[in-house]
Design a protein around this nucleic acid. Structure first.
Length: 87
DNA sequence: CGTATGACGTGCA
DNA sequence: GTGCACGCCATAC
């Protein structure tokens, strides 16, 4: 696993319930403020159950995508109380 | 090693 | 406000 992936997964894993972080924010904390592209690519390949990747959304507040289905992602976010544009 | 793609973001019409 | 195009990093082939 690359260092970047480890950082990203680590940060996403640290996202508290009811909160959401944009890919850019995660990339920034990962050490590469311009690697949000890789963040999504990395998460989609590392859909680890310990990683609440559904809490990672786009900067505009949209849920973006999800390996298990965007709908499920939205559902989980709403269930946790996360504010997204699907409300 | 080089090319193509992606769960994106920003800019412009 | 919406739609299209370009740019970016990392991964896969």
């Amino acid at each position: 696993m690359s260092e970047f992936e480890d950082k990203v997964l680590r940060i996403v894993k640290k996202i508290p319930p009811g909160k959401t972080m944009s890919y850019k924010q995660v990339a920034e904390k990962a050490g590469s403020p311009k690697a949000w592209r890789a963040v999504g690519s990395c998460l989609k390949k590392n859909n680890n159950p310990a990683i609440p990747c559904h809490r990672v959304i786009k900067s505009d507040g949209s849920p973006g995508g999800y390996n298990k289905g965007r709908k499920l992602k939205i559902k989980k976010l709403k269930q946790e109380g996360a504010q997204i544009k699907e409300l």
